[in-house]
């Protein structure tokens, strides 16, 4: 092998880059997020359901919120007709957060796990949560 010093140094850099994600996660505390829905408002509901079915909300809530933002802010339309035919007031703070008043245990649990920082709270006021 020629220039073995440089070759070995280069290969060490290469292997370190490959190994980095593994080394970085040594001792990482991986807890599967469990978004909590046991807020007082939800507990009092007779039929516990969101504006759309759970599966839809889990996958598409960001798109729905985006649609709601456009509808309320740009078109001035604050009425949402869900797929079940129900009417809802389009409002993050008065509809979504009315039931899901536990942002830290609901929104943040998955968002923190996925390292996502939605910019909802750049404009909206995050609910003040009293430690229960």
């Amino acid at each position: 092998m020629y220039d073995s010093g440089k070759i070995i140094a280069g290969l060490l850099v290469f292997v370190s880059i490959i190994a980095f994600p593994f080394v970085y996660n040594i001792g990482a505390d991986i807890v599967k997020p469990e978004p909590k829905i046991d807020t007082p408002v939800i507990q009092q509901m007779a039929v516990k359901q969101c504006v759309e079915p759970k599966e839809f909300m889990r996958a598409e809530h960001m798109q729905l919120l985006n649609k709601w933002r456009d509808s309320a802010v740009r078109d001035g339309n604050r009425v949402y007709v869900g797929s079940r035919g129900d009417h809802y007031n389009i409002s993050l703070q008065n509809t979504c957060m009315h039931c899901h008043s536990n942002k830290k245990e609901f929104c943040d649990s998955c968002h923190n796990y996925m390292a996502v920082k939605p910019y909802c709270w750049d404009c909206h006021i995050a609910p003040k949560e009293n430690s229960l």
Partner: peptide
């Protein structure tokens, strides 16, 4: 959409 939380669980399982 796929279940992103599941995706991360799978990825983290591989990493650890």
């Amino acid at each position: 959409k796929v279940d992103v939380v599941g995706v991360k669980q799978l990825a983290m399982g591989l990493m650890t």
